[in-house]
Structures are given as structure tokens and as C-alpha cells.
Write a protein that binds this DNA or RNA. Structure first.
Length: 278
DNA sequence: AACTGTCCCTGCAAGC
DNA sequence: TGCTTGCAGGGACAGT
């Protein structure tokens, strides 16, 4: 599922292939993916504009336009942004088509339609996209200080896993990478945040950076459902490096002694090694 | 503050 | 074979 590394991989593709392109014409199929505003607002906001940059905060793609507006794309569970030659046969669930001035089309494809595309005035981000305005620090795109992270950890007794998943605290970590990060940091997902000493806090801070960077270098994770692919339709390879996610019942690859356990809380699965994560 | 459960949606896999 | 059921999960939200 698209988390920070997958969204960053898409962002890099957009930076290389969409920035500088003019959007000549826009088609919107299912109105659900533009529910934040409307079909007419998206078409009016995009048509005739040129994409001037490709940014990202957490899992949100933010693309400034030469009109002064910005386009936001969120992939949620199953969204894809694809760049294809004009006239290519549409995939099922192709909900937004942007016809570009270079003979390509940019598609937003999303079977589950949890994802969305929005054009908004950045000065009104708090009204249109309040959750974007309240995002926490992006550990890759922004300065992610150990001191500040330690302050956050000390401030709450929440368990580490839900804390890592809270986009208002740190932006971009989802279920897969939260499990992989906690495994690398050798910390149990249910450890209260304020129980970490300085060394454990540093391990967690390091693991956030190293796991996310390695996953970006691998082009993200593409699971067996192939739900995530990059702009050109290629999958990532970081799924081969998962040490706990999707490995319930297997022997721990790290310590060789524990068996990977899977628990469910808040309707989401958690994977960890009860031996080497404490 | 912090927890749980529900909803949105589709595709796929397991079970009968 | 063909049905039903469950599961996957990002994020908002309601309820406790």
C-alpha cells in the first residue's frame, strides 16, 4: 500500500515527467475521487495550467501549478498515477485523465476509490484540506531532529505503533513501514512511548530514517496484489526486504529464535518478533 | 487524552 | 464449479 516510500517514488517520477508539462484537457469519470470539491472545479482548476513542481508531505502529493493553485493527489489504499501515451487503452478504474502537451496522458487509477484528486488555493489549505495543514514532520523531506522526536516520545504513554501511524505526529508512515521500523529498532509495537530511554529513542529515530531511505532506494514495496506501481507501471522491490510484515508464523530472520507474531488492533494487523523486540 | 469500532470500496483468497 | 465470507488498509469520524 502506498506509504511514504511509494509516494516518494511516484513524486520522483512526476518530477521527471510531469513538471513543466501543460494540462490541455481533463476528463473526470467517477465523481467520488473528486468528492472534496467537484468534477467541474477540478476540470476548471487544471485545464490550461502548467505543473511547476512536484512536492510531497507524508503521503500527500502536492503539485503547484502556474495558476497559483496546487493539485493534491492522495493514493490512499489502491490509487495509482500512471503516465501513458495519448490514446492508450484505459485501464479499469481510470477516474481522472489529464491530456498533456507532450503527447502523453497522466491517469489517476483507483479500484477502491479511497484516493482523491483536488485542486485548491494554497492560502485556503486549512479549509479545503485541514488534515494537510495539521500534518506532522515528514522524516525524509524535512529536518527530523532527534531532540524533537525525543520530546514527542516523552510526552505520551501511547503505544509506539499507533504513535508512528499518527500522521499528525510523523507524516508518511503506514502499517507496513511501522512494523518494519519497530523491528529494526528492536522495540515492541505496544511499548509505551514514554518508556524509551535515550538509546532506545535514538534507535527508533535511526530506524525511521534508514528503513524509509532503503525502501525509497528500492522503489517502495509492491505486494502480491500489485496494487502499488510507479508512474511507469513498475513495481518496487522492498517487499523482498520485509522482515516481519506478512511473515506471521515464520521464524524471525533477525534473531533466528523467535516466531513472528501477528496481532490485530484498531482493525489493523501488527507483526513483530517477541524475542528480539522488547 | 487515548482507546475502539465503523465507514468508505474493490479484488482476491479461502472455505464450504 | 460457484457461492459466501473475510481480509487488506488510510484516514475521518463517533462513541466511550
Amino acid at each position: 500500500m502506498p506509504e511514504l516510500p511509494e509516494v516518494e517514488t511516484v513524486r520522483r517520477g512526476l518530477d521527471a515527467r510531469l513538471v513543466g508539462r501543460r494540462i490541455d484537457r481533463v476528463e473526470v469519470g467517477r465523481e467520488r475521487v473528486v468528492r472534496r470539491t467537484s468534477r467541474d472545479e477540478l476540470i476548471a482548476g487544471l485545464t490550461g495550467t502548467t505543473v511547476t513542481a512536484a512536492g510531497r508531505r507524508g503521503k500527500y502529493l502536492l503539485l503547484p501549478l502556474d495558476s497559483g493553485d496546487e493539485m493534491m493527489i492522495h493514493l490512499r489504499m489502491s490509487g495509482q498515477v500512471l503516465l501513458v501515451p495519448a490514446g492508450a487503452e484505459r485501464l479499469p478504474h481510470t477516474h481522472v485523465v489529464m491530456h498533456l502537451d507532450d503527447g502523453n496522458e497522466a491517469w489517476f487509477v483507483d479500484p477502491r476509490t479511497f484516493g482523491e484528486v483536488v485542486v485548491f488555493d494554497p492560502e485556503r489549505v486549512g479549509e479545503v484540506l485541514p488534515e494537510v495543514a495539521r500534518l506532522g514532520v515528514d522524516p525524509i523531506a524535512e529536518r527530523f531532529e532527534l531532540r524533537e522526536f525525543r520530546r514527542i516520545l516523552r510526552s505520551t504513554r501511547r503505544a509506539l505503533k499507533p504513535l508512528l501511524l499518527d500522521q499528525h505526529v510523523i507524516a508518511g508512515i503506514g502499517n507496513i513501514y511501522a512494523d518494519e521500523i519497530l523491528h529494526r529498532a528492536r522495540l515492541r509495537p505496544d511499548r509505551p512511548a514514554n518508556s524509551l530511554d535515550a538509546r532506545a529513542s535514538r534507535r527508533l529515530h535511526d530506524a525511521i530514517g534508514s528503513v524509509l531511505r532503503e525502501a525509497i532506494a528500492a522503489g517502495g514495496s509492491t505486494l502480491s496484489d500489485a496494487q502499488y506501481v510507479d508512474l511507469m507501471g513498475d513495481g518496487g522491490s522492498y517487499q523482498d526486504d520485509h522482515r516481519v510484515y506478512g511473515r506471521a508464523g515464520e521464524r524471525c530472520l533477525t534473531c533466528g529464535r523467535g516466531w513472528i507474531r501477528r496481532t490485530v488492533s484498531g482493525g489493523r494487523s501488527t507483526h513483530f518478533c517477541p524475542v528480539c523486540q522488547r
